[in-house]
Amino acid sequence: MGLIEEMAARSEELAQKWADLILGTYPVETQAVWRNNRDQFSNPVGHSILTATSELIPLLLSWNDAEAVAKALDKLVKIRAVQDFSPSQALSFVFVLKKLLRQEFVAQLSSKGELEELMRFETRVDNLAVIAFDLYVASRDQIARMRVEEVKRAHTNIVRRANLMKADVAAHKAD
């Protein structure tokens, strides 16, 4: 059985293990809470992590739908973009997948002399990281834009009046 086939067979288990590694990037107390509670509404973060990993593993295997990959990634990136993470920490969740794959498959593949297969697969993970980077920056841009827009909205009518004043002054000069 090749790497892809084996991953496909163990897809659920791998998704779970990857999610556990991602949870490991949070403080211990937080992990414990988020691990135990899989509810979409009372624990959206824990739920999103598991949903994202479950969706991404099959997508990585088929590797033919960039849009679907981006959509699945976005769920997680958006959350991590507003948590107290540095950019590197925020995106580290992609790279822990490499760690997982090595843990799970290196011994077995190297004994069969098929390590190359894993290395080939890892380029997909690297690509995943690049997509995640785009999404992360887009989220951060959005936050910055929302700040500016919020201030503008708060002053909509004030700005309108300020413009009116300018018009008045201009009219006065014309006289």
Partner: peptide, 21 residues
Amino acid sequence: MAKIIKPDEMLKSINYAPPAT
């Protein structure tokens, strides 16, 4: 802005669960 941390620190934060404080 979040502070920039060194890669090895980052790896530590991933691999090593800090003690419960």
